[in-house]
Amino acid sequence: MILKDIKNIFHQELDSLYIKEEVDSFFYMLIDSYYNISRIQLAIHSDLKIGDSEKILKALKLLNQQKPIQYILGETEFFGLPFKVNEHVLIPRPETEELVEWILNDQAVKPKDKLSVLDIGTGSGCIAISLAKNLPNTKVYALDVSAEALHIAKQNAKLNEVDIEFIEASILEQPIIDEEFDIIVSNPPYVRKQEKQEMKANVIDNEPHSALFVENENPLKFYKAITEFALNNLTTEGALYFEINEYLGNKMIELLADNDFKNIKLKQDIFKKDRMIKGIKN
Rank of each mutant, 00 (worst) to 15 (best):
M1D: 01
M1H: 13
I2L: 13
K4H: 10
D5W: 05
F10M: 08
H11G: 07
E13M: 05
E13K: 15
E13Y: 11
L14Y: 07
K20G: 03
K20E: 14
E21Y: 06
V23C: 13
D24W: 04
S25E: 02
F26P: 01
F26Y: 15
F26A: 07
F26L: 07
D32T: 10
I44W: 02
D52E: 14
S53C: 03
K58V: 02
K58I: 02
K58C: 00
N64R: 14
Q66A: 08
Q66G: 03
P68H: 09
I69C: 00
Y71P: 07
I72C: 11
E75P: 04
T76Q: 08
T76G: 02
E77Q: 09
F78G: 02
F79K: 04
K84S: 11
E87R: 15
L90I: 12
P94Q: 11
L99R: 01
E101C: 02
I103Q: 00
L104A: 06
L104G: 04
Q107Y: 10
A108H: 14
V109L: 14
V109E: 14
K110D: 06
L115V: 04
V117R: 00
V117H: 03
L118Y: 09
T122K: 03
S124L: 07
S124C: 08
A128G: 13
L131K: 09
A132K: 01
A132P: 00
A132M: 03
N134M: 13
T138C: 15
V140G: 03
Y141V: 05
A142R: 05
L143H: 12
A147Y: 11
A149G: 05
L150S: 07
K154A: 10
K154Y: 01
A157H: 09
A157C: 13
L159P: 09
E161T: 12
V162A: 04
D163C: 02
E168M: 09
S170A: 06
L172S: 13
D178S: 15
E179I: 09
F181M: 08
D182M: 07
I184N: 00
V185C: 07
S186Y: 00
P189T: 15
Y190M: 12
Y190K: 02
Y190N: 01
Y190D: 00
E195L: 05
E195W: 04
Q197G: 02
V203G: 07
I204N: 00
D205E: 13
N206W: 13
E207V: 15
P208H: 08
A211V: 07
N216I: 13
Y223M: 10
K224T: 15
I226E: 00
T227A: 10
E228V: 14
L231R: 12
N232F: 08
N232E: 13
N232I: 06
T235W: 03
T236W: 02
G238I: 14
N245I: 11
G249I: 10
E254S: 12
L255R: 05
N259I: 10
I264Q: 06
K265Y: 05
L266N: 10
K267Q: 15
F271G: 01
R275P: 01
R275W: 03
R275L: 05
K278G: 02
I280K: 05
N282H: 09
N282A: 11
